[in-house]
Amino acid sequence: MDQTGQAYWSAVLGLLGKILAIWFVVSFGAGILFADALNGIKLGGYPLGFWFAHQGSIYIFIALIFYYAKAMDKIDRKFDVHE
């Protein structure tokens, strides 16, 4: 792989790392591992940990994919590999 190709791929992996970290934190973190602790906080009538498991993580997943798609388009253009 040439220099640009390598720089492009590491930019992609960097973005992926960030996306997957948030993906993990909201579902496995807030929704499962720390759900009990978060349940002490209320979001309207929702205990927060329960909310992450039944609602919140899904909304954040959607936001993550659209953010990822947008950020990838930007990276594609920056390294001039877009379609």
Binding site: I19, S57, F61
Partner: peptide
């Protein structure tokens, strides 16, 4: 709920 939706993040990025 999380299992059947979170897979789409993996699908979209990976």
């Amino acid at each position: 709920l999380m299992g059947w939706t979170g897979g789409y993040v993996l699908l979209a990025c990976l």
